[in-house]
Design a protein around this nucleic acid. Structure first.
Lengths: 365, 365
DNA sequence: TCTTCTTATGGAAGCGCTTCCATAGGAACA
DNA sequence: TGTTCCTATGGAAGCGCTTCCATAAGAAGA
């Protein structure tokens, strides 16, 4: 049964020059076993060992046992790298996000990774720290690493990226921005509608003068979409949102507080502050309380994202829940399906929800 | 100069059966180019193209230009997978964390990824969602994927994992727990000292009755270390920390509030609440304010981690800053050095800092 | 002018898998 | 008893790189 019986000397083809020192009694260096080692130990061919992993149904019970034992004895770990090369399938999904240091992306990736790992996929991540130039490089890196699918944030990017991806046939999905006019795979809540809705809520309450704090909109279509939602709602009521009351800031609590202070000093201060993320809103709310303002009578503050802390503030924050977990899971599911050759619906929009808290109310005067 | 002049027909070795349909005028499917394609286009050998990437100094200027143009025309992206297989170096670092959905780990990974990508490394991540059984599998996966180094959280794990890693010669580093008795590579602030310090602070203020909220300590040596720090400090003053006042909870704001309420109902309520993370502390603090308690007179609350929001609360939170960013960077640097063959100091402990806020003070009565 | 050294390049094996194809033995059928 | 069909297995090429070694052609030294 054995392919080669007898002598133990290593009769593999010469590889002396490859850095794997051979022969002699040496302190066991890093062990490196491969299918062939297992095959020899089990007295079968490499092919059969491969089948053990990939089509276990096709090998005899007794053979399976021998192989399984050989694997255990050698503590063999198959090389996914070689597998990838041979199959052109890496069982890896790439994700390029602006940063992980933001609860939203972190949670999205967390749920995505979870879903993926259940399906035998690993997650390769990179962040471009909001620099669009970086993204192109990162996509190339990902392609070079043979990712089977790619998650991207936002819809807008250097057009070459989409070309590259299409040409290489790499499935991808964009998250956090939905634009039904664009025919690309997208997953995420409808930020435009959500922003519109929360602005409507404030308009319904009777607010007429607004201020907005947003992420820097350059290279950030999520922020731009939200802003467009705010603005559209306001203009639909015959009001306007001049640029002077739209503040662009990197997302810090501190910025929320600072902007709040600054807008209160204007002649006719806004009665409502629309924030592009809860982070701003929380900063503003805490500052307002520190200043002894009467909330929401003196100023209404709304957030976006529904961070876990939003509901615990006093007053609780009016905000938008974006179904973050669902987004990560849907994105994972989309990619997995696509990889399997199924053609899943390419736009999926988990439902957002307006969360009403005490931080918004009728304007005081 | 050309290796093969003339006819355009594909004279590569047959690969018809490998799924790459050949010949005929076909709609250009997924392009797949390799070194050889580039070589042919540039009229040089594969080897030379390889050198173009790896030892550019060794090829003539003119050759370099030809290759560079061929690469551009073909939009060639080298296969890192093949490279990995050939070199046994993947230029990938793995990271296994309990969850990304925690500001601390997210930030650590963020800074680590940043550092790594500058050095040409990618980051492969996985989370075990606090289940130790998972970790073993994930480590195997990582090994199978040929990671050049591995980041782990905490020092305690199934012993087989360390064996496996050592046997395979995979460099690794553990973060967030420091134990100088253990001779493994470790990076992270000294949580024991930090916990001791913050408890000392409260003891100095005159507190005698404490309660603690911690992560579930099973499978979490970080939590255990912190708790030990609290307890040691307390016992050193001749006081005690009975188990009834140590609460284990998953990290949610809500838990902080709930535990606060519950301890206030005891006969002799604690005057100080030591929290294993700011998340608990913030929850407790917000709840205390909602209950109209006088802080810190009626109850002192301390946190851990120094989340960005901690200093903005009213009163600001007394907490510990753990130098998170530094930890991620140091971990990355350690692994990179180790991979390069340098033997860097295996334990590095960024300095923590006690942040004093108004949430702690003398007990009121 | 002839030898020796460099320098730029090419040939080909090998990294550890998958997969196409071939083959040996039974089982199943006539 | 002969034919056909499965089933379990093995052989070997190929995935796209790196790297050892060989080699041709100048440059440098004698």
């Amino acid at each position: 049964m054995q392919i080669r019986s007898g002598h133990f000397s290593d009769d593999r083809p010469c590889r002396a020059h490859r850095g794997l020192k051979e022969g002699g009694a040496q302190v066991s260096g890093p062990t490196k076993t491969n299918l062939l080692d297992v095959a020899r130990k089990a007295g079968v061919s490499q092919t059969t060992v491969s089948r053990y992993f990939n089509e276990p149904g096709k090998i005899r019970e007794e053979t399976r046992k021998r192989i399984s034992q050989a694997i255990a004895e050698l503590d063999f770990v198959p090389s996914m790298t070689a597998r990838t090369l041979a199959m052109s399938r890496s069982h890896t999904i790439g994700a390029i996000v602006p940063t992980f240091d933001h609860a939203l992306f972190a949670r999205e990736l967390n749920d995505m990774a979870d879903q993926l790992s259940k399906a035998g996929y690993a997650l390769l991540i990179a962040s471009d720290q909001y620099e669009p130039g970086q993204e192109t490089d990162l996509v190339r890196t990902m392609i070079g690493r043979n990712v089977d699918g790619l998650l991207l944030v936002g819809l807008e990017r250097e057009p070459g990226i989409y070309d590259l991806l299409d040409r290489r046939g790499v499935p991808y999905v964009t998250t956090w921005t939905i634009d039904r006019e664009v025919s690309r795979p997208q997953v995420g809540a409808d930020k435009f509608a959500a922003a519109h809705e929360i602005a409507d809520h404030l308009l319904d309450l009777g607010h007429q003068r607004f201020a907005v704090i947003e992420f820097p909109v350059a290279n950030n279509d999520r922020a731009r979409t939200r802003l467009r939602g705010f603005r559209t709602a306001i203009e639909e009521r015959g009001l306007s949102l001049p640029n002077e009351v739209v503040f662009e800031e990197p997302p810090t609590y501190e910025a929320g507080g600072r902007i709040l202070r600054s807008i209160l000093q204007s002649d006719a201060p806004p009665t409502a502050l629309l924030c592009g993320t809860d982070v701003f809103a929380i900063g503003a709310l805490l500052e307002a309380k520190r200043l002894g303002l009467n909330l929401p009578a003196e100023i209404s503050i709304s957030g976006f994202d529904n961070l876990p802390i939003a509901s615990l503030l006093d007053p609780p924050l009016t905000t938008i829940d974006l179904a973050v977990r669902e987004t990560g899971q849907l994105a994972a599911r989309y990619l997995l399906r696509k990889i399997e050759g199924v053609d899943p619906p390419s736009i999926s929009v988990p439902r957002h929800e307006l969360i009403l808290g005490g931080s918004t109310g009728r304007p005081g005067r």
